[in-house]
Design a binder for these strands. Sequence first.
DNA 1: CTACTCGTTGGAACCGGTTTCAAGACAGTT
DNA 2: AACTGTCTTGAAACCGGTTCCAACGAGTAG
Lengths: 340, 340
Amino acid sequence: MEPLPGTARIADVAARAGVGVATVSRVLNGHSGVRSTTRDRVVEAIEALNYRPSSLARSLSLQRTMIVAALLPWFTNPSAVQRVRGIVDGLSSSSYDLMVFDIESEDRQRRAFELFDRGDRADGLLVVSTLPPEPEVQRIQAAGIPCVLIDAVHSCFPSIAVDDVAGGEIATRHLVELGHRRVALIGDPPPEFRFDWSRDRTRGYERALAAAGIEVRDDYVREGTRLPHVARAIAAELLSLRERPTAVFAASDTQAIGVLEAARALGIEVPAQLSVVGFDDIEVAAYVGLTTVRQPLVESGRRGAQLLLEVLARRRAVEPLCELLPLELVVRGTTGPVPA
Amino acid sequence: MEPLPGTARIADVAARAGVGVATVSRVLNGHSGVRSTTRDRVVEAIEALNYRPSSLARSLSLQRTMIVAALLPWFTNPSAVQRVRGIVDGLSSSSYDLMVFDIESEDRQRRAFELFDRGDRADGLLVVSTLPPEPEVQRIQAAGIPCVLIDAVHSCFPSIAVDDVAGGEIATRHLVELGHRRVALIGDPPPEFRFDWSRDRTRGYERALAAAGIEVRDDYVREGTRLPHVARAIAAELLSLRERPTAVFAASDTQAIGVLEAARALGIEVPAQLSVVGFDDIEVAAYVGLTTVRQPLVESGRRGAQLLLEVLARRRAVEPLCELLPLELVVRGTTGPVPA
DNA sequence: CTACTCGTTGGAACCGGTTTCAAGACAGTT
DNA sequence: AACTGTCTTGAAACCGGTTCCAACGAGTAG
């Protein structure tokens, strides 16, 4: 009995064409050494059955998927989206397809590595803004899966990153040079499983203040997630202090925008009464005129993808280098001289 | 000889534990009916070898992946990102994982369906802002893969969409009611393979003009892709016409923003000299104060995901219904009365 | 006429899991 | 001691492809 169209297996095609499965496979993959009359019979059978090989079975047999997986926490974040855009661009000239996997929770992170750490669902891994748990690192290396880190650094893998300490310093120094001495900071909470760039930016902040002879005040250093309303609430607290800061360095643009919103709600004028610096230079930053430290988000994705393709091409492992991308202060309208 | 850690197969575990592969499989999947001393030996072997089952082989055997695939053209577009956000949210309570696949080119679209139309790489499909080619529709149905369309309508699948004709009408009527009679439109070019919502919004535009007794002028109706610079160039042309339009309806917010940029470059004041209405209400729209027709982007993703989960749960196919989400005019600062 | 080569071809092993099914071990009954 | 039922267990079939290798037929050289 013939199978339903669209459900045929290679054996069905072989049966209908009166040949063996090996021959069908040869035709499918364009191997030479098939008599043209035989090939025609096979092609006819394939079309009659509306047959398409199972890519899953094919991958299992070939031990190859022609897929690259990108693992990101909260991949709908503006900065993550930019990175993905770069990855898409970096892979576009290759014959690899990209599959994007969100790992917003610890549970999903576990699942993600369950799917990918054996290398059977993807030939290469791009891990963005996260560090793989140590057991996974070992498994990935044992299985020999090419893996590149973006916006995270690990001694076992090639990484694309920025110098977060320097970034925090650039932002803070800008404020100090404008005359600010009451400079607050809003950072991310210590991450459960993510790469701790926030700590480094905080260190840069501290270093810049130290260089200017300004003491770090505990009540000026706050932490909160990137969720808009959280950042807004924290900023509101900060701006309600008796001795209100005259400037805020937010460790990400999304948080900086929360600060701007809080300021507007409190009737505090920016930049006349309050200066705000962000980090990342996401698209919205230009629209709201946010002064920020630009990191090349798109470029980081593109470069990571390129690096991965190189590792995939020559099968020898590229040594675990760490490529730092340049940072740049972009001065827009949210920073100004300290109020008199 | 023992395999490298992280490369072990189930047979290796079985051999080390001195049991059969069936027993290892039972332990892995938590089946009852394994003597606890045996189970312990198996667990010990699994840990010693740092074993993890191949999810690919598992899927092949089980004919099930616990993965939902979302296929989107240009998934880094702001509106697409919002939809993905909704999808993530809609799936978060389930045990399905999401894999996102970009299909920006016709080639990638073909690849995408090659991977997914047999249902072996994913248990369910969310096709966003695209129509599957007709042969794929047949294959998907033959293979019985649950599939839900978002922002596209097809008689064979459940769909989540908006009434684009009504949307175009709402936007245009708003302009007409402000007194505008020279109303231009910037739409998308007829899509190669995408869902043609732009045509419907244009139809709504025409209908609203007709209702007001205004004739449609060919030179006021333009087409261009969503790329920022393309929209800007088209807008610049439009705003340089001898008889310049006093209002522009852009069929998407990204294009509307291009219009705003062109106007600023030409020194045309918005809304004093030019009114602009967009469509979608992406996040940036609020920041630039764009008047627009809001469609529930996040909600469309969430609802699509929910629908798909229902189809996946009770295996009977849900009838191909079309669920329309509500549209809403959001008046901000880019529209005003016609200049005297 | 035999032997050897070359071009085609299909059977079977393999990729790495799950599951059926029959059989072995063991305790409880009669 | 023989019989029955329950609990464990592993060999083998299966998921759907790819590919090694042996075999087969035709053509040609010796």
